[in-house]
Write a protein that binds this DNA or RNA. Sequence first.
DNA 1: CCGCGAGGCGAACGACCGTTAGTATCGCGT
DNA 2: ACGCGATACTAACGGTCGTTCGCCTCGCGG
Lengths: 195, 195
Amino acid sequence: MDRATEIRKTAISLFAEQGYRGTSMKDIASALNMRAPSLYNHLESKQELLREVVMGTITRLRADFDAATSEASDPVDAVRRATAVHVLLHARHPDETRIGNREIPSIDEPVRTEYLRQRAEYSNAWQSLVQTGIDAGAFSVPSPKFAVFAILEMGIGVANWYRPDGELSDVEIGAYFGELALQMLGRHDEGFGGK
Amino acid sequence: MDRATEIRKTAISLFAEQGYRGTSMKDIASALNMRAPSLYNHLESKQELLREVVMGTITRLRADFDAATSEASDPVDAVRRATAVHVLLHARHPDETRIGNREIPSIDEPVRTEYLRQRAEYSNAWQSLVQTGIDAGAFSVPSPKFAVFAILEMGIGVANWYRPDGELSDVEIGAYFGELALQMLGRHDEGFGGK
DNA sequence: CCGCGAGGCGAACGACCGTTAGTATCGCGT
DNA sequence: ACGCGATACTAACGGTCGTTCGCCTCGCGG
């Protein structure tokens, strides 16, 4: 692993632990037995590190969503798969996703606006997916908009408590939360706790 | 409203919007047409403002939980009430709860450790509540621990999207999420009347 | 063996931060 | 009318920050 990659990994870890503004370039350098000015041989600015993390993560999240839903055979399967990949990304990359959720005020313009736009598009894609399911008669839910918010937020929260050595693996939690999501949407066909 | 209260309200608003470290004493003072040093006639330090917010919020959350569950007649009712007050606090105090969830790295020791301890106790109280329901045969859930995490996180998320002028009021969302929580726990008896 | 680029280093810069000290002003109780 | 407490102000201090600059060393290709 080359220096530039080491620096980025260390920065992500420290940003997640201490916050972006609570982490100095000296902190990052010290963790690699370097001095702060030496970092600038491998990057342009501290802000660049943050930008790479948050934009990379939202891009990855949207790509996973698109892949998952395009593989699905019907709306129920699509929601199950989309929830699973949403949860999986948060379980496997808790540092990156926490930074993306907590450090929004630390992102300089114009990147912050673009980042928020992409997040809104991700949320909108979910709303459309569920609406398609409702139109197809697959779901029965009093307030689909709020149900989707609930599904997304419970997946985001996985980054705060998931531990690889816990009683369920990340894949199992993804499957479990996929079923929870379908329950919350009032899935009509049979299955786990369905009506 | 006296000056001390005005300062605290302004600080909460700015901390929520820009982050604790992204907000300077000058920012707070400017919003009140003051100079930064004048703030010190009304407070001891910037950190004191943060401490008051986060400790006040977790104390309020635990008190509401205790009140809600002690009024309940059975585990199903207790979970419904506990979810409702959890959601209500996050809907009505989004700034304070967001600060409590995002600014953990900004809290100086020893307050941070004490704050995290109180959060853990709140989470533990929820786990116990649900376990009581399972023992009483009211719930059937494959992984109660993770179901509780999901319920708590989906309520925390309300602070990120709830708007007072939305299609549902905060009380309605609290009731709705209470039902979602019971679904997620695989409630055995159905409806509002209990068994 | 030489040259050169990559990458590390100390020094330093300008900006900003939280906070303190000392001073002025205003309004109220007496 | 007077004094005093509350509260605002300016000036300033010590510290930290991100970043730039110039230098030095090291290893490798020719």
